[in-house]
Amino acid sequence: MEKKTVLMLKERAAKVRQHSVEAVYGAKSGHPGGSLSIADVITYLYFHKMNIDPKNPKMESRDRFVLSKGHCCPALYSALAERGYFDAEELKKLRKLGAMLQGHPDMKNIPGIDMSTGSLGQGFSTACGMAAVAKRKGYDWKVYTALGDGEIEEGQVWEAAMFANQYKLDNLIAFVDCNGYQIDGAVEDVMNPNPVDDKFRAFGWYAQVIDGHDFDEIDNAVNNALASDKPSVIICKTVKGKGVSYMENNYSWHGKEPKDDEYAIAEKELYDAWVKAAEDVKNG
């Protein structure tokens, strides 16, 4: 990937992180940890890779994205707002009565949301359904989906993994956001899903393991995946809470909002990171 593209994506991701935490703070609830760990993948897809048109969110030939780990929608909503699907002011109303932005993605009312998700495991199967249609109809659109490393404890995920292999869904690319934590603690302590890559390989998938915060690695992996004749999984090693010092690798930030003093710290850290990223774009 060109250096200027990487710098642009870093700046966009910094903005997505700012919005994500601000939205959760405003909502006084939500899931900052996983939003921050998946922010780079979402930014890459919406600002670089996917064939989409924010002015025509339902464009038939578009690539699809299903956030199977639907609770991390603050990152997705932030990317959609920055991409122009809707006004960023909506982010301030997240989770409030009458708001368009629901606590989990709602495809019926939010422009750019391809599937309603939130109950873990189901989004992954729906992505398989979309990919299956494209495959059978000969459409060239791709289907991307993102799961959590806690989410893959759901049995349905492995039903879907078998389905994707059975029907050779080589147009399906799944990211597993391996930030290592779920609500009750480290994934190894709660219900160890590892090794994730070998499990998917055993299910007939093409599996790659990358640094989920490195845009070059994400881009390489996606291009490899697109060239593969199997369904692809990209295991993203990530940091839960990435970008906010006290949230990083601390599972207590899975599903709660920062209080005023905590937000002040997060706001400054994320703003400073964005200023730096924006300067890098300017300086090339």
Binding site: G129, A131, A132, A160
Partner: peptide, 9 residues
């Protein structure tokens, strides 16, 4: 859920 994904298209 696969059915839902199909229907979503």
């Amino acid at each position: 859920s696969v059915s839902a994904g199909i229907a979503a298209t």
